[in-house]
Structure formats: structure tokens, C-alpha cells
Design a protein around this nucleic acid. Structure first.
Lengths: 282, 282
DNA sequence: GTCGATCCATGCCGTCAGGTTATCGATCGC
DNA sequence: GCGATCGATAACCTGACGGCATGGATCGAC
């Protein structure tokens, strides 16, 4: 009994781990509940560890179960990525997929794509817009992405820094703080700040445009990297936040990638950007 | 037909990819050859891509197959790691496993372990000796490892640098170059150098002791980080190689690790080492 | 306390995926 | 051309996985 866990077992396990409810999880998987119970029992026997605490009324993850939940997601991402990258390697029109947030390229993208075009062994680049770009990289839906550090978790990715710029507070033009030459984090203590890490208390903003709309309405204050603030709506003002850690825009790709086309894109990005001499590693 | 690939399919595929021979691969898997043929055909149908070119006399990987070979190994490592880490999370004597090469700790290990002991939420550390420490990290057999940069591939790992030291050439004491105060790479051009990257032409050395034995016998010259050269056998001499990139000893762990015990070990390692303020990233 | 509802576990059964053996067809060395 | 080699195909078999019915435990309502 030392063969590897099967993908199906991990999928079933994660359904229960998400729902903490066997019947609902079974419904989500499109199977009956007893089949699911049996898969989990088999998994537990195979691993020699209890994964769930069943109190006949509630289901909770054991510590071992929590570990498996994280690891299983990672493993399934890798399996999905394997399938997707293989399919794409066989595609009749080979190309790279670059994931980014709309407007999040600091204006560098045209130069990067032009430079990439001139690289040997480059491929056409197709751009897709998505919020969760890191996930796209991890499960193989994208080959590269424009990310922000330190806002995003870069583990498992290789990176090429493109540009480092300070954070700016974006305020209604009429806001008392809008006239200031600079701000400190403490100055915004009483504001309903959007755009920092962690959940915000204010309304949700899906895109930058929506966020700025909310700022204009006086419902929130945004703190964002400078390169997304130009040009700015005329009813808004931006002020640098001097004691916040600056944000680096970077190109990222899966660390174990060996694609020459991705390497070409990285070279092009490094060459076409202001911060273009240092190579990010590991 | 959009469910994830199964682990078994990837294992079967990799067997063929390794052997490039269906019958041998089947034997290795302990199954009959027709079953393997069918699994591969099914995989190819599922992915919509040919993985092997069968010329009725030879089997070769297609480009898509090469991609899958790399990705499948990655995915299987992740699956294995999931199982191992889950089992270990449930172990009755919780502990961390630190992988290193014997003698490769630059004498820092006792201080690190002592400091770790004093950290909150630390765990006892069990040390194992192994050459391929990166692989142990990737498939979950170790929680942390002492590695050398730039000699090893750190992608997908988080790191804490401990110490940076120059490379030393280790020669027989009687060697003409042994009296020099320093060397350049070019000085060793005519020697049979061991210990650099890439395959060496000389005899194989499994451990440092074996390598130094070979040097003493005059069969090779070693180029190794300084911290593995103290103390040195009295019949050997070491000379710094000034134009070789220095080697950094670092503590590494899986990038997506969330174990508090690993974090404690990393903090301890940073605090107990000379280069202990900068945190490695990604 | 009893009853009903909820929810996971168990028992039993059917089906098909994945295995087996036998054999074919193509290719290569001699 | 002949035998050897090797992957694909055909026909069949078995057990793992999933379905249904039901059991047993717990909790809330009254």
C-alpha cells in the first residue's frame, strides 16, 4: 500500500474539507454520500491518520487534515498545470499567455512585447485580464503574469523586477488631505482605506475603475502604486504615502519553467524596463 | 472528459518516458504491456496531443510529451509530498527533518539548533544526510535543508542565507600551485577539477571525505566552498580561487510551507548565522 | 421522554475501468 | 525471405468504485 494517492481521492477530500459536510460535498461532486464516506475512510486508512473529526453532528478538520488540505490543493494545481501545459505545447498556434490586471502594466507592456518580438525563440503573446493572476500561473492557465510585490505571494515563482514606485493615496480633489505634498500612514488612520492588504471594511471594488469611482463618491480612499494613477480623473488627487513600502511591478513565471519562449519574454521585459539589469531569482 | 489526470496515468506515462520502451516500462511497473499501451492511448486522447512518436522500432517523446514529462514529475512530487507531510503532521513525536551533506554546515548547526530550541513553537530537529537535498524538500521527505547557492536550483524554495564564502581549490600539499596565495580559474585549466558544476571527467566521489582522499592521491583537484575545508588533512593545502563566484550557504524550505516550526527554524538560523539579517524571498 | 430530523457509517449489489493472455502486423538485421 | 522484436488489437475477467437501502447516533421540539 505504498503507491501514490490518486487525484480522485484528493478531489473528494477537498470537497469535504471545503464543505465540512459529507452530503453537501457529495452533491457538489455529483456522487452519492456513501461513496464519499468510503473514499475518505480509505484515504485515512492509507495515510494512517484521521483527517476529519466527525462528531455525528459536525465535521472538522484534524491538524493532519489541515496539512493535507493545503498540500492537496498544491498537488492538484500541479496536475492541472501538467495537463494544460501539455495541451498548449501541442497547440497549432503556439503562443504565450500573459496575465495582468487591466491598466496594471505601468505603460511598459507595448515596449516589452515589441522587445520580445525581436528576441530569438520568442512566441506571440496573448494577454488575458484576471484578478487572481498567481493562481493562473500555478495551474497552468497562464505562462507569465504581471504582479506586484510585496502585495502578492511570489513563492514558487521566478520574477524579473520591472519598476519600483511609491504608494499613492488617491483622494477626492476636495478632500482636506488632497492638498498635502505627502502623507504618512498615520494620516489616513481615520479614513476608510481601500487597496491595502487584508479585507477592507468598505464597499467592494472589482476593478480599478470601480475603486476610483468609489473614491470620487467619497466612500473610500484608495492607496495604490503610482503607476496606476496616471492619468487620474480630474475630480481626484493623489498624494505619495512616504512611510509605506514601495511597490515593485514584476514579471513572474513558474519557477520550474524551462520554456525558451518564457525566457525570451523575461529577457525582453528586463531589457525594456527601467529596473532592467537585475535578474530575479528563486 | 474534463476531470483531472489521474496519478496512475502520470506514473505510467513517466515509466514509458524514462524507458522509451513499452515492454520494459511495463515490466518496471509490474503490469503487462497491452495495459500500458492502452493507458498511454487514453492519455493521448484525453489531452488531444500525441505524446510519443512510435516508429515501430523506436519510441521517442514528442514536444508535448517532453512538456508532460517535466510537469508530471513536478505534479507527482507534489502528490507524494502531500501524503508524506500529512502522515508526519499526525506523527506521535512531531519533529522537523533537516537535510544536509555531512560536514556541510560550516560549523553553524549547533548554534542554529540551540537557537531553534529557544524559539516558541519550535519542534525537535532530526538531521538526515543526503546528497539530493532539493529533491527531499520537493517530495516532502525533509522540511528544510542546508543548500549551496548558486550550485543548486532554488526555484520553488524559500531561503535564508547563512554565510557567504569564497571557493577554495584543494590540492595535494606537494602540488606546485599549493604554495600560491591565490589562484584564478585559468590556473586550474590543465587540472582534472572536481566539484564544479557539470559532470566531471575524473573518478566519482560520493562524499567529501572520498573527494579529499582522491585529491590526496593526486587523482583530482577539488574546488569547494571554504567552510568545508576546515580542518583539512595535513597532506592537503587549500588556496582561494579569486575569480570564482562565492558560495552562499543557506537554509531552504518549501516555498508554500506554513509550518510554524519551519518558520521558527528559519528565524533561529537567521539569528545564529553571520549573514543573519536579510530574509530570502520567493 | 418521545418523536422526528439530520447526518455519517454500513451492507449489499451492479458496472465498467483497468488488468490479463493470445495474437496480429510492421519493421529490421541477417 | 526469415526470424526476432515490439507495439497495437481483440476478447475476456476481476475488483474497485459508485448506487441504493438502511442502521445508529445525536440534537431540537414539545
Amino acid at each position: 500500500m505504498d503507491r501514490p494517492l490518486e487525484t480522485r481521492e484528493l478531489v473528494h477530500f477537498l470537497a469535504v474539507a471545503d464543505e465540512l459536510h459529507f452530503s453537501r460535498a457529495a452533491a457538489r461532486l455529483g456522487i452519492a454520500q456513501p461513496a464519499l464516506s468510503k473514499t475518505i475512510q480509505k484515504l485515512e486508512r492509507r495515510l494512517g491518520a484521521a483527517l476529519f473529526e466527525r462528531n455525528s453532528r459536525t465535521v472538522t478538520l484534524t491538524p493532519a487534515g489541515q496539512v493535507l488540505a493545503r498540500e492537496a490543493r498544491h498537488a492538484l494545481d500541479a496536475v492541472d498545470a501538467a495537463a494544460r501545459r501539455t495541451r498548449r505545447a501541442d497547440a497549432s498556434d503556439p503562443h504565450l499567455i500573459l496575465a495582468m490586471k487591466a491598466g496594471g502594466d505601468a505603460g511598459l507592456l507595448p515596449a516589452i512585447l515589441a522587445a520580445c518580438d525581436r528576441e530569438p525563440s520568442s512566441l506571440p503573446v496573448r494577454v488575458i485580464f484576471h484578478t487572481d493572476r498567481v493562481r493562473l500561473l500555478r495551474d497552468g492557465r497562464a505562462d507569465a503574469a504581471l504582479l506586484y510585490s510585496p502585495a502578492e505571494d511570489l513563492s514558487g515563482l521566478d520574477t524579473e523586477p520591472l519598476l519600483t514606485e511609491p504608494l499613492m493615496a488617491v483622494l477626492p480633489a476636495s478632500h482636506p488631505l488632497a492638498a498635502r505634498a505627502s502623507l504618512r500612514t498615520a494620516d489616513l488612520r481615520d479614513e476608510n482605506v481601500h487597496g491595502r492588504r487584508g479585507p477592507s471594511t468598505g464597499p467592494e471594488a472589482g476593478s480599478l475603475t470601480e475603486l476610483l469611482q468609489l473614491v470620487a463618491l467619497g466612500q473610500t480612499v484608495a492607496v495604490v502604486p503610482r503607476f496606476v494613477t496616471t492619468p487620474l480623473r480630474h475630480d481626484l488627487a493623489s498624494v505619495p504615502v512616504t512611510d509605506a513600502q514601495p511597490v515593485t511591478l514584476l514579471l513572474a513565471w513558474p519557477a520550474h519553467s524551462t520554456s525558451p519562449a518564457v525566457a525570451a519574454l523575461a529577457r525582453a521585459a528586463g531589457a525594456a524596463s527601467p529596473g532592467g539589469e537585475a535578474a530575479g531569482a528563486t
